[in-house]
């Protein structure tokens, strides 16, 4: 059920990004809306749940985009690895940290796209450095604007899922016969 919810959320974001967002002229270059979802999965969800969903979202985006196949998948998987590694070092529940991870993710994804475009370039037309700077500046601007809200939303969703899990564990512990717990939470608050 949870998988379907994440897939539904991802699909909604993709459809919004490809149909509604391009019609809003004032938005300009908005960051990839699936990045916050990928970060949430990487930082707050268990590996066995987050990795397949991240791969699925990457493949979906690669099919929706006209770029080289695997570009989004690569960016999401590397984001997953980096965000997960970062969450072991820093306190991932801190909204400022989440916003920082989002800024790094946006910069990293654009760097990957630029590298892919540069690799496929031919002819005498130079690389559009001005466009790259503008895209990066606008996307980071949008992250700074909506990032804190997204970080707050992620934290809220995480705490809600923890409360639900605690209730389920307490309910099972109250039973007379011995039962297996669904897992224990590590020092970083993530399930193992």
């Amino acid at each position: 059920m949870r998988y379907f919810a994440y897939i539904g959320c991802g699909l909604f974001l993709i459809i919004f990004q490809t149909t509604v967002l391009p019609r809003l002229a004032f938005v300009g270059y908005c960051f990839d809306l699936l990045l916050p979802l990928a970060i949430y999965l990487a930082v707050f969800r268990p590996r066995h749940e987050a990795l397949p969903l991240t791969v699925f979202l990457g493949l979906l985006m690669d099919n929706m985009s006209g770029g080289p196949f695997g570009l989004y998948l690569t960016s999401y998987v590397w984001l997953f690895i980096a965000a997960r590694a970062a969450s072991t070092v820093v306190r991932a529940e801190n909204p400022i940290m989440v916003a920082l991870i989002m800024i790094c993710a946006v910069a990293g994804q654009n760097a990957l796209f630029v590298a892919a475009l540069g690799a496929g370039a031919s002819g005498t037309v130079g690389f559009p450095a001005g466009l790259a700077a503008r895209i990066l500046a606008e996307q980071i601007g949008w992250v700074l604007l909506v990032g804190p809200f997204l970080a707050w939303g992620m934290r809220h969703a995480h705490q809600r899922s923890l409360r639900r899990l605690e209730k389920a564990v307490i309910g099972k512990a109250a039973l007379p016969e011995p039962v297996e717990t669904q897992g224990h939470r590590g020092s970083d608050g993530r399930l193992s």
Binding site: I14, I15, Q17, T18, T19, P22, Y29, D32, M61, M64, S65, G66, G67, N110, F113, V114, L117, I135, Q139
Partner: peptide
């Protein structure tokens, strides 16, 4: 045209 590319770097439409 019913959809546009999710990335700012690539110009494709559906």
């Amino acid at each position: 045209i019913i959809g546009r590319d999710p990335s700012a770097w690539f110009k494709t439409v559906i």
